[in-house]
Simulated scan of single mutants.
Amino acid sequence: MKRLLLLTALCCGQATSAGLIDPEDGMLDMSHNLEDKPYGFLPIPVVITEPAIGYGGGLFGLFLHGKGTQANGRFIPPAMTAFGGGGTENGTWFVGGGHRRTWQEDHIRYLIAGGYADINLDIYSGDVAGFSRNKAINTETQGYGGMHKLLFRVGDSPVFLGASQSWSKADIAAKNNPVIDRVWQRVLGDDSTSSSLGVVAEYDTTDNFFWPGQGVSLSGEYQFYGHFLGGDYRYDLLTLDGKVFLPLNPTWTLSLAGNYQMLSQQDQHLPPMARPYIKLRGISSYRYQGDDVSTVQAQLGWQVTPRWIVQGFVGAGSAEDSASDLYTSAEVAWGTGFRYLIAREYGLHTGVDVAFSDHEQAVYFNVGSGL
């Protein structure tokens, strides 16, 4: 505790000298550092407690190239770049980055990202020998890849249409299980390449990219994975995603989110990480996979002060082999967290969530709402 207090005092002193105190309320704020300094960035600590890969950490930097603008009641963020890396106790490590920018007052949106990862991960389901819902196969995946997405606004409407493309190359092995590893090598080969081309449609009326206070965000993407694109596997993936932000009063906001993924037209055998999985705070990544996966979430935020927000959330997910079986059983996760308005000029919030599910718990450092 003494070290923490000393560090806090030291950081406050350094923040004052560096101009990181907002003169309006005397609170820590990085707007000036992000706006006016060519190399100013928001450091984002990555404290990993993801049950699937263990404890670890890392650091990412978020660079905002400009101040952003206001148009028709919404904040248009400036171009932004993020990059960094991290690792965990089980030997997992990763590096990566991305860039997002818009043109013509948010009529054109572009996103590009890429990275390299060495991931040691327990996977519980698949179509190659060795899987069951209650027994994990410890896998090691080494690979690199990237994606990009280009969207065009339809007139002055909130509708966007565009395309996406992704590519990755990975070497997958079953650690500590030579029998299953030999089966995988025979069926999947020494390494695998996945390549996709997608069509995208989005509807966006949210008022702020970093922290929506109201509005609706809907997106649909259909990705074609195939040999004609340079990949080793043939399958299609449909992803539908929706978020609604409802201000109940000046201090309370209700956020609702839903996601659905469907795998179809697939080859007989696919790499283990190709299948959709339940993605919720408090549940291990790739713990529950299926051809059809759905999640629903609700989050309630309380604006305690102009800078601080406390929130609680609950979510449920289901992973099955067909859509008709969804939610015949479900996995539930819940938790609480807080956000701090770290850059008032951008509406940029950062904070921590603590999440729980049956037999698991995890801590997440998030920029944004976490949905």
Score class of each variant (00 low, 15 high):
236 D>T: 07
197 L>D: 09
242 G>F: 10
203 Y>E: 08
194 S>I: 12
311 Q>E: 04
310 V>L: 15
206 T>Y: 04
307 R>G: 08
194 S>G: 15
235 Y>H: 07
284 S>D: 12
300 L>G: 00
270 L>R: 05
253 T>K: 11
311 Q>T: 05
283 I>V: 12
287 R>W: 04
233 Y>F: 14
295 T>S: 06
232 D>I: 01
274 A>D: 06
202 E>C: 04
294 S>L: 11
277 Y>H: 10
253 T>I: 09
314 V>W: 08
198 G>P: 10
293 V>R: 00
267 D>W: 03
246 L>A: 15
273 M>Y: 11
214 Q>R: 15
265 Q>K: 06
279 K>V: 13
315 G>Y: 04
215 G>L: 10
197 L>F: 14
226 G>P: 06
241 D>K: 08
309 I>E: 02
277 Y>L: 04
236 D>A: 09
219 S>C: 06
223 Q>I: 00
224 F>R: 13
288 Y>H: 09
308 W>P: 04
223 Q>Y: 01
216 V>Q: 00
221 E>M: 12
281 R>V: 12
292 D>T: 10
245 F>V: 13
282 G>M: 03
269 H>K: 10
231 G>D: 05
193 T>C: 07
213 G>L: 14
311 Q>G: 10
210 F>V: 03
241 D>P: 15
303 Q>K: 14
227 H>N: 05
195 S>N: 15
249 N>Y: 03
215 G>E: 04
227 H>D: 12
207 D>K: 03
308 W>L: 08
314 V>A: 14
246 L>K: 14
237 L>A: 13
298 A>R: 10
242 G>V: 13
271 P>M: 09
243 K>Y: 13
272 P>Q: 07
205 T>C: 00
250 P>A: 00
264 S>A: 05
290 G>P: 15
269 H>F: 14
317 G>H: 09
276 P>H: 06
304 V>K: 07
313 F>E: 08
246 L>S: 01
305 T>I: 01
194 S>Y: 07
303 Q>W: 07
221 E>K: 01
301 G>N: 14
245 F>S: 15
248 L>Y: 00
243 K>W: 05
231 G>E: 14
306 P>G: 09
260 Y>T: 09
